[in-house]
Amino acid sequence: MSSRNIQEDSYQTSRHQLEKNASEDILEKIIAGILFACALVSVLTTFGIILIIFQEAFAFFQQVSFAEFFLDTKWTPLFANRHFGVWPLINGTFLTTAIAMAVAIPLGLSSAIYLSEYAQPKVAAILRPAVELLSGIPTVVYGYFALLFVTPLLRNVVPLELFNALSAGLMMGVMITPTVGSISLDAIQAVPRSLREGAYALGITKLEAIFRVVLPAALSGIIASIILGVSRAVGETMTVVIAAGQQPKITINFAESVETMTAYMAQISGGDSPRGSLNYQTLYAVGALLFVITLALNIISYWVANRFKEKYD
């Protein structure tokens, strides 16, 4: 083969390679554009929701002052004698949330410790999906289970109203347990084994090593899981709508019926209030406040996870 033919073959090969690289570059740009469009849809949807919520909330606050909304202690926007104090709804929300976290924190953290430190790998491979399966149960099922089973059971021991904060909070706690447990488990498993071995070398027991070494090292992830669990509980709807009732009041008595912010929003969104009316706008005022609360909780969770994150070589 002559040197001229060799040069022509080399030229053709280089040309085909350049064309192939160019087509691959175009394909990658198309894929990147599609992925960017998908991400942009998510971002625009979020901004659209925020815009609508705060637009209607602004119309509400043109008729109801901030002082009346945040300082009044009665919430009766649907009655003839109207009051727009949001504190009864906040009280109901955080009362059920406190009960839920009193259940979710010990259950979730205990399950995370067991699956990480005590369970055999085969057992952990079975139990972890089983625990996380609790988060896949529809919340309406939790609500009816609380109303039809938990409340009658507890009324044999505690004098409860038919609709009460205790039953709703207990079932919310069970529902949130996978959130706390799964994130805490990831945080505990991220602790290097060298720390555990160093603790054992000092002669302490396994339980002491867990509470004195492992958990403090995983504290940022555990705290973040708890805050995310609180955020989930604050935003829960169907369980509290069915089991907690719709009586807005300021109380710490878990045996009484209360109304949460999400329960009120579900009540108004049923269609009884005409669009554009003041009653309808209360839905967005409460929704805006709920959005601010959950956003603050998520920011705190992110800050805690980064502020107290342990880094190991």
Rank of each mutant, 00 (worst) to 15 (best):
Val158Glu: 04
Gly143Thr: 06
Ala112Ile: 04
Leu166Asn: 03
Leu134Val: 14
Arg128Pro: 06
Leu147Gly: 03
Gly136Gln: 08
Ser111Asn: 09
Asn91Trp: 01
Leu170Ala: 06
Ala100Pro: 03
Gln120Thr: 13
Phe66Ala: 11
Leu107Asp: 06
Gly136Trp: 00
Ile126His: 08
Val131Lys: 00
Pro178Gly: 10
Ile105Gln: 12
Val86Ile: 15
Val131Gly: 06
Trp87Gly: 11
Thr93Pro: 06
Lys74Phe: 07
Thr93Gln: 03
Pro192Asp: 00
Ile105Arg: 02
Gly108Arg: 06
Leu71Trp: 10
Phe163Ala: 11
Ser116Cys: 05
Ala112Pro: 06
Ala146Glu: 00
Glu161Lys: 13
Ala190Arg: 02
Asp186Trp: 03
Leu160Lys: 04
Val174Lys: 00
Pro129Met: 09
Ala67Asp: 14
Ile99Pro: 03
Leu115Phe: 09
Val141Tyr: 06
Thr139Gly: 02
Leu107Ile: 12
Asn156Glu: 15
Ile176Cys: 00
Leu185Pro: 05
Val103Thr: 09
Ala168Cys: 11
Arg193Trp: 08
Pro178Trp: 02
Phe94Trp: 04
Phe149Lys: 15
Leu115Ser: 11
Phe66Thr: 13
Thr151His: 03
Ala125His: 09
Ser111Gly: 14
Pro138Leu: 05
Ser110Phe: 06
Val103Lys: 05
Ser110Ala: 13
Ser135Tyr: 02
Ile183Val: 15
Gly143Ser: 04
Val141Leu: 14
Asn164His: 10
Val157Trp: 13
Asn156Pro: 07
Met172Gly: 12
Trp75Cys: 08
Ala100Ile: 01
Thr177Leu: 15
Asn156Asp: 14
Val180Asp: 06
Thr73Ser: 10
Leu153Trp: 14
Thr151Ser: 12
Ala165Arg: 08
Phe79Gln: 15
Ala119Phe: 00
Gly181Phe: 01
Ala119Arg: 01
Pro152His: 07
Ala125Ser: 15
Thr73Arg: 11
Lys122Val: 12
Thr96Ser: 15
Ala98Tyr: 02
Ile183Ala: 05
Ala125Tyr: 02
Gln63Ser: 15
Val150Asn: 12
Pro121Lys: 03
Ala98Gln: 06
Thr76Met: 07
Tyr144Trp: 05
Glu132His: 09
Leu127Tyr: 03
Thr179Lys: 01
Asp72Met: 07
Thr76Arg: 10
